Computed example of a mutant assay.
Amino acid sequence: MTLVYVALGANLADPITQLDNACNALSLLTESDVQVSSYYRSRPMGEVVQPDFINAVACFNTSLSAIALLDALQHIENSQDRVRLERWGPRTLDLDIILYGNEQFATPRLTIPHIGMTLRSFVLIPLFELAPELILPNGSPLSGYVTQALQDELSVIETSVA
């Protein structure tokens, strides 16, 4: 079993319900409990005008390989009507593998750790909530990336139900 962290985000079609449904679907990928951070509101990245996002991070143990987990996450996205029209555009659901154990690798389909994780408040803050003592695969403590400015970018909107 491998401990994984998955970022969740949505800004269309009742985002809180989208995240709740995704958390329920994630529970089918593990034989253990899924831990989920609080839900946070964040501003969208990029230049596309769109609603704010609701974000969270989930962690769980899985026996799936990283690519099989990616496939499973994309299946969950598709089952919740995810449509990929534009980069950083609005979406019903976005699920990204942030960490897969302590592994580091890059393939055409998947980079682990997630390439932008240390730059995104909507990933770092919920991840820090779940694992404040986490040491990243590069040997750096997660806490070294969490600043007050990043924390101020987000607001907690709801504790997850998963």
Rank of each mutant, 00 (worst) to 15 (best):
M1G: 06
M1D: 03
T2Y: 03
T2N: 06
L3Q: 13
L3A: 10
L3N: 11
V4E: 08
V4Y: 10
V4Q: 08
Y5M: 10
L8N: 00
G9I: 10
G9E: 10
A10P: 12
N11Y: 02
L12G: 01
A13W: 06
A13K: 10
P15R: 00
P15S: 02
N24A: 13
A25G: 01
S27C: 12
S27I: 07
L29A: 08
S32Y: 07
S32G: 15
D33H: 11
V34D: 09
V34C: 11
Y39D: 06
R41H: 00
M45K: 09
V48S: 01
V49D: 12
F53C: 04
F53Q: 04
I54M: 05
A58F: 05
C59T: 11
F60A: 13
T62P: 11
S65I: 04
A68H: 12
L70G: 02
D71S: 14
A72F: 00
I76S: 13
E77W: 11
N78L: 04
R82W: 15
R84F: 14
R84V: 13
E86F: 08
E86Q: 14
R87P: 04
P90R: 02
L93I: 04
I98P: 08
L99E: 06
E103T: 04
Q104F: 02
A106E: 14
A106C: 11
P108L: 09
T111A: 07
P113Q: 07
P113S: 09
H114M: 03
H114R: 03
L119F: 10
R120W: 13
F122R: 02
L124I: 11
I125W: 05
P126D: 03
L127T: 15
L130W: 14
A131W: 06
A131L: 05
P132Y: 10
I135C: 05
P137F: 03
S140E: 15
P141D: 01
P141S: 04
L142K: 07
S143Q: 00
S143R: 00
V146C: 15
L150A: 08
Q151W: 11
E153H: 00
S155F: 05
V156Y: 06
I157P: 12
V161G: 15
V161E: 15
